[in-house]
Amino acid sequence: MNITVLIPTYRRPQDLLRCLDALTKQIRSPDEVLVVARDSDRATWDAIATVETGALPIRTVSVTIPGQVAALNTGIEAAKGDIIAITDDDAAPRPHWLERIAYHFETDDAVGGVGGRDWLYVGGTDRDDGKSAVVGRVQWFGRVIGRHNLGFGEPREVEILKGANMSYRKQAIAIAKFDTRLLGAGAQVHNDLAFSLGVKRRGWKLIYDPAADIDHYQAQRFDEDQRDQFNETAFFNAVHNETIALLDYLPMWRRIVFLIWAFLVGTRKAFGLVQWLRFFPKDGGFASRKLWLSLKGRWEGFQTWRMPPGDRTPQEGAAISVPPS
């Protein structure tokens, strides 16, 4: 099976070069490396030009529309492989990454997606070596458990794959696109959640294999979402996007349970009333602000979800073009 490695990138040339270098060390070599970059990102195009000819089967695609969703949709459309393995530009796949991915697809025709552990590096040096037996699940009432950076043990079926380390059988995503309803100027948080749940909903198996692992250095983002720094717009967008993804995935009775739980209880990252009561003694008005943003995100996410497709404003429209000279 031919494998395309898809890398969306924006203004992180040194991280991209580290990622490409890691791909030259794969035990199972990629058949195509597809780098999707913004047409205006001169630093990235200059960095790609420095890659030694013949080191990798690199093909480049230019996009004009901001955001990761447009880049990923353009890349999927352009990819030639039977398998599309997606990673971030600030990641460095370990040598057996593609070998493990190929194994799962080749041994089970029902497998539509494969992902693995991403070893997170805090500040670029300190690795998080924690462990979690539960990875990539949606609990019956709608709470999402990610923890892809903490998984260990044997390969197993999951419901969610993480964007930095996920791959899909092209047949499984022939009618799929990353969701253009999602909000965000750059990362469009939870696009991976929505996409993997869509593949799962259509009946394909998703496999999480901790041995198909990468090193993930979490470089700077160039939008409102700055990871560990609170930003009201990023907080609202994340709640809005998660709401759409879960309402798409859950059956009717679980949607109702999820909405009740989300408004009454919630989580640290999307407050409900219980979480507000929990944090209010310590955080006061800040907790109240998070509650307001969470409730607003849930409500507007619900409104977006129930909107007829023809009334939605698409965020896609990226065009495949020749790289700047």
Rank of each mutant, 00 (worst) to 15 (best):
D215K: 15
F235L: 06
L17N: 04
V33P: 04
R227P: 00
L17I: 04
L6Y: 01
N191Y: 01
T125F: 03
A70P: 00
S62E: 02
G301A: 12
D248C: 11
N231H: 10
T24H: 11
E52R: 15
V111K: 12
F280E: 08
N165D: 02
K177T: 10
R94N: 08
N2P: 06
D248G: 13
N149C: 15
M252S: 12
G115F: 04
Y208W: 00
G67E: 02
P210G: 11
W97K: 14
S294I: 02
A176N: 11
A176S: 13
A110V: 05
K80Q: 13
R156S: 13
D21F: 09
E242A: 15
I260M: 11
P93Q: 10
A211D: 11
R255L: 04
L273N: 09
R201Q: 13
R289D: 03
L72G: 09
T50V: 06
P324C: 05
G54C: 06
D89E: 04
I207V: 15
I173Q: 06
F279Y: 13
I256W: 01
A85W: 01
A174M: 07
I86R: 03
A172Q: 06
G123V: 09
N191D: 09
P281Q: 10
I86S: 01
T44R: 06
G75L: 03
A91C: 14
L182I: 01
Y217C: 04
P30W: 02
V138K: 14
E159F: 03
R169W: 00
N73M: 08
A176C: 11
Y121G: 13
G153T: 07
I260F: 08
R143V: 08
S288N: 10
W292A: 15
K205R: 15
A71Q: 15
A174P: 00
F286I: 11
L56M: 07
Y10I: 12
D109Y: 01
D90I: 02
